[in-house]
Design a protein around this nucleic acid. Structure first.
Length: 563
RNA sequence: CGGGGCGUAGCGCAGCCUGGUAGCGCAUCUGCUUUGGGAGCAGAGGGCCGGAGGUUCGAAUCCUCUCGCCCCGACCA
């Protein structure tokens, strides 16, 4: 490709609304342009990178035995009504009507469509297992789209759905997909971890998220420094702490704490530490109000709370309900003499001579001991933190941030049952198909690659994703010798790789800056001075290494740099 | 959905408080000079100041409504 013919509008400054590096660099490198909130156009350079991600995904999915299909973006409401999600999914589902006033939605995911197809076409266990995937545009009307391609409303996703006669078959396919995903992200040149994740209401023993490690990641993951255990912080198991420390035996005492509501205020006022405070949160659930206790320096985890209480949903109680349950305004709740069910994190059991709210305005209690002064059901209720002990070994947790680029999980029979997707087994008995589903955010993967591979000057593409493998940069196209050498090298390389020839009549500095910005792995610079010696310069974007080689050897040297 | 902020040339911004008919840098176009890390000089083009309504002799500027965008939170699994 000739730079002079390419729509590649680079920017010196990043747009003011760009927040994360990948978004800034994709804008500046002329890869994407925003059309509306969370909706982008991919320009030629951006599309090339995204196509590379897609190519790798296709190759590995096909290799893993999956078959590509293409399902519609516009989906009739009936299918979603059948699965029950038309009412459940909420406002993220963009709904629309056609000219006959029939209802449709833009597909945010395709379980319904694929299940509908399979129930029509698959009759026998002989046709199973089956894994169907597509790479296609999805729409989710996110409340707050941000970070460019990382969290758009319209985005390209690879979604795969597998269908099985037995749970064992699903397990095998899950493993198969796990390996395929590992290969995909390895080939993309990404540093990632597969972590255990929440499955939500969907079931299955566990699911795995594939996280690209990056500061800007929206998810926090806890990983063991010693063993392979890694989990989304929402799910990471926190071990029950060791033996209790002996209590002083002093009786509970009421202390006045006028206007002190937060852990920070109270602990400062009472000259103690947050670790010695029992944070008491009142939650409203479908089973009534409950109290949840965690140590003052810990964070409650609502997923864990939900699981422990067996509730369908939990949410922090309103002011009035707190007043009703505790007899005090928010900020003075405590477990002592509380009449609603109490769930406490293991860490609370460890507190002796602790501090907590007195269920009375402007008052707290001290010398509180869990075992003596109140009764609670103990469980793992908090978010994991750095330094927590690993549940699997003697190591401790590190907390890292990650970008979720892939997610695999076992669906079970949620959709097949609701929609009547069945097959006949060996005995001619009708049974419900068991399903798995496997997603990859395509644009997000490209963005994540930039988050992980850039420097001050711009993008540093991992070679497999690079829009071009090599860039040929004649310093001065008006110089006949330079131009001829560049054209010749361009033609030679072009038969073997994707080459960008910067044939623009621009100053050298401009061309160098653009080259660094768009981050092509190898750059061949052809200038008059070196050319007189029969030499050209090869620069590797990642290492910055520069070497002079014979013009005749240039093509070979480029390939050497790329290998 | 709650709170905050911003819409002025392709991009980044000033002007608004204190009304007088729009400006800076970058980009674009022309010419000359320059040519290995975002050149210099000279000249040029480009804006219904997000939209509608109001106040006023006069509105980018003040008021009301509206649309869009951004940030924080809640939401989402």
């Amino acid at each position: 490709m000739r730079y002079s013919k390419m729509l590649l509008p680079t920017l010196k400054e990043s747009p003011s609304d760009a927040e994360v590096v990948s978004q800034k660099l994709m804008m500046r490198a002329g890869m994407i342009r925003k059309v509306a909130a969370g909706i982008y156009t991919l320009l030629p350079l951006g599309l090339r990178a995204v196509r590379n991600v897609e190519r790798i995904i296709r190759e590995e999915m096909n290799r893993a035995g999956a078959q590509e299909v293409s399902m519609p973006v516009v989906i009739p409401a009936e299918l979603w009504q059948e699965s029950g999600r038309w009412d459940e999914y909420g406002k993220e589902l963009l709904r629309l009507r056609d000219r006959h006033d029939r209802e449709f939605c833009l597909g945010p995911t395709h379980e319904e469509v694929v299940t509908d197809m399979v129930r029509r076409e698959v009759r026998s266990y002989r046709e199973l297992p089956l894994n169907l995937y597509q790479i296609q545009t999805k729409f989710r009307d996110e409340i707050r789209p941000r970070f460019g391609l990382m969290r758009g409303r319209e985005f390209v996703m690879k979604d795969a759905y597998s269908f099985h006669a037995t749970a064992e078959s699903l397990d095998a396919e899950y493993e198969n997909m796990y390996r395929a995903y590992t290969r995909i992200f390895e080939r993309c040149g990404l540093a990632f971890r597969a972590v255990e994740a929440e499955t939500g209401a969907i079931g299955g023993r566990f699911s795995h998220e594939f996280m690209v490690l990056a500061e800007s990641g929206e998810d926090a993951i806890a990983s063991c420094a010693k063993c392979a255990y890694a989990a989304n912080i929402e799910r990471a198991e926190v071990r029950e702490p060791e033996a209790l420390k002996p209590a002083s035996g002093q009786a509970v005492e009421r202390v006045s704490t006028p206007g002190m509501k937060t852990i920070e205020e109270v602990s400062a006022f009472l000259k103690t530490r947050p670790e010695l405070m029992i944070k008491t949160l009142i939650y409203e659930t479908d089973k009534g109000l409950v109290a949840a206790l965690v140590r003052g320096d810990h964070q409650i985890n609502e997923f864990k709370l939900k699981k422990v209480t067996g509730a369908q949903w939990v949410k922090l109680a309103e002011e009035a309900q707190v007043q009703k349950a505790t007899g005090a305004p928010v900020g003075f709740a405590g477990p002592v003499k509380l009449s609603i069910p109490i769930y406490a994190d293991f860490g609370v059991r460890n507190i002796s001579d602790g501090f907590t709210g007195a269920n009375e305005l402007d008052a707290h209690l001290k010398h509180v001991n869990a075992s003596r002064d109140f009764h609670a059901a103990y469980a793992d209720l908090r978010n994991a933190e750095a330094g927590d002990r690993c549940p699997r070994c003697e190591g401790t947790f590190e907390i890292k941030r990650g970008i979720e680029v892939g997610h695999i999980f076992k669906l079970g029979t949620k959709y097949s049952e609701a929609m009547g997707a069945t097959f006949l087994d060996e005995e001619g008995k009708e049974r419900v198909i068991t399903m798995g589903c496997y997603g990859i955010g395509v644009g997000r993967t490209a963005a994540a690659a930039i988050e992980q591979n850039h420097d001050e000057a711009g993008i540093i593409w991992p070679r497999p994703l690079a829009p071009f493998d090599c860039m040929v940069l004649p310093v001065n196209v008006k110089d006949e010798e330079t131009r001829k050498a560049a054209e010749a090298l361009y033609d030679e390389l072009r038969s073997e790789m994707e080459v960008l020839l910067d044939d623009r009549d621009e100053r050298a500095g401009v061309k160098f800056k653009d080259a660094d910005l768009i981050g092509i792995p190898v750059r061949v610079t052809i200038g008059e001075r070196n050319l007189k010696q029969g030499k050209v310069e090869i620069k590797e974007r990642r290492s910055g290494d520069v070497r002079l080689v014979d013009l005749k050897e240039a093509a070979v040297e480029v390939k050497k740099s790329l290998s």
